[in-house]
Design a protein around this nucleic acid. Structure first.
Length: 233
DNA sequence: GCGACAG
DNA sequence: ATCTTGTCGC
């Protein structure tokens, strides 16, 4: 018997109370003292995202692997599942992780870095979607969100690459990063096995032209296609 | 106690 | 997340 790649734990929760307990358990296994993949070296960066059909209770996930230097797509995978958890702020991971793991398992390359929508450390309990994905896969994971959630920040400078701390009180839980000049920043936080400095360097490199990193854009487009192409060939 | 709150 | 056309601009 070999272990399936990226399998869910046997005690994966279905209720909010169970989820809180599982989250605490996983949080004890996060690794925050690794610098992460060096920005200069060759890297496969994988974007993951999900789309929902609330009518049919269906969720589609996509994983798209890019060469982080050329931004060429080197692999793609999708997975479709049932929505098995409600949207609860702070517990987003339990809604998205199962189907995302399926998509990652179907990818025929090993990710050097995973980029997901949402947060890692920038989370009420310091353990968001990116953190869950990191601990469950063992991969370096960074979270890139479009909104500041509940956190405060001073607007970063206007230039591409300018950044400012994302703050929970006095604590820097992430960074507001300007990926395009004069455009609203994205909100970067670390998930697992990556430091914030390198996380921002990678995100910046992955977003040479648009606000969101190409990993996110590619995964977003693919999961929407997967959802649409479901139910009628 | 209630609302706000990533996707 | 999702509901949603054309339109303005580089």
């Amino acid at each position: 018997m070999t272990d399936a790649p990226y399998a869910l734990p046997p005690d994966w929760p279905t209720t909010e109370a169970e989820a809180t307990a599982v989250q605490e358990e996983l949080r004890g296994r996060v690794v925050l003292d690794e610098p992460g993949p060096p920005p200069g070296a060759p890297l496969v960066a994988v974007g993951v995202d999900v789309a929902y059909d609330d009518e049919r209770d269906v969720v589609a996930a996509a994983a798209v692997a890019l060469d982080a230097t050329t931004l060429d797509v080197v692999a793609e995978a999708t997975a479709v599942g049932r929505v098995s958890f409600p949207y609860v702020p702070g517990l987003l991971a339990f809604r998205e992780v199962p189907t995302v793991l399926d998509a990652l398992a179907r990818l025929d390359v090993t990710p050097g870095l995973v980029v997901c929508d949402g947060y890692g450390l920038a989370h009420p309990r310091r353990f968001g979607l990116a953190s869950h994905l990191g601990v469950l896969t063992g991969l370096p994971v960074v979270g890139v969100a479009k909104n500041p959630f509940t956190f405060r920040f001073e607007p970063p400078g206007p230039l591409r690459g300018d950044a400012s701390p994302l703050l929970d009180g006095e604590e820097e839980v992430g960074r507001a990063l300007r990926t395009q000049p004069g455009v609203k920043p994205v909100f970067v936080s670390v998930g697992h096995r990556v430091g914030l400095d390198r996380a921002c360097e990678h995100v910046l490199r992955l977003a040479p032209r648009f606000r969101l990193p190409e990993t996110t854009r590619a995964a977003d487009a693919l999961c929407r296609r997967a959802l649409a192409g479901h139910g009628r060939p």
